[in-house]
């Protein structure tokens, strides 16, 4: 099973340029037309399951607005 991931978009920085939407290999990012950022843009958001945490969205993001998380199967070390 592919590792699951998720992204968090910081609305303070996101300018809705949609470069991450175009770059996402899984096509699970879209602009959130329901909300506006403090600057007045529609921010990017995760719309579906299937994010693998590949971080390609973060690689193309010009505003470093995206934090990417991915599941890791590391055992907890005490």
């Amino acid at each position: 099973m592919a590792l699951k991931g998720t992204i968090e978009v910081n609305h303070k920085y996101c300018k809705g340029c949609s470069l991450c939407v175009e770059a996402c290999p899984q096509n699970v990012i879209a602009l959130d037309m329901e909300h506006l950022t403090p600057k007045g843009y529609h921010p990017a958001m995760l719309i579906d399951e299937g994010c693998t945490g590949c971080a390609i969205c973060a690689v193309v993001c010009p505003d470093a607005a995206i934090t990417v998380y991915r599941e890791s199967r590391k055992k907890k070390t005490k």
């Binding site: 910081n10 920085y13 945490g53 470093a64 934090t67 998380y69 991915r70 890791s72 055992k75 907890k76």
Partner: peptide, 10 residues
């Protein structure tokens, strides 16, 4: 044990 690790942050 599955944990979420940060792959990328600002």
């Amino acid at each position: 044990m599955i944990e979420m690790e940060v792959v990328y942050s600002r």
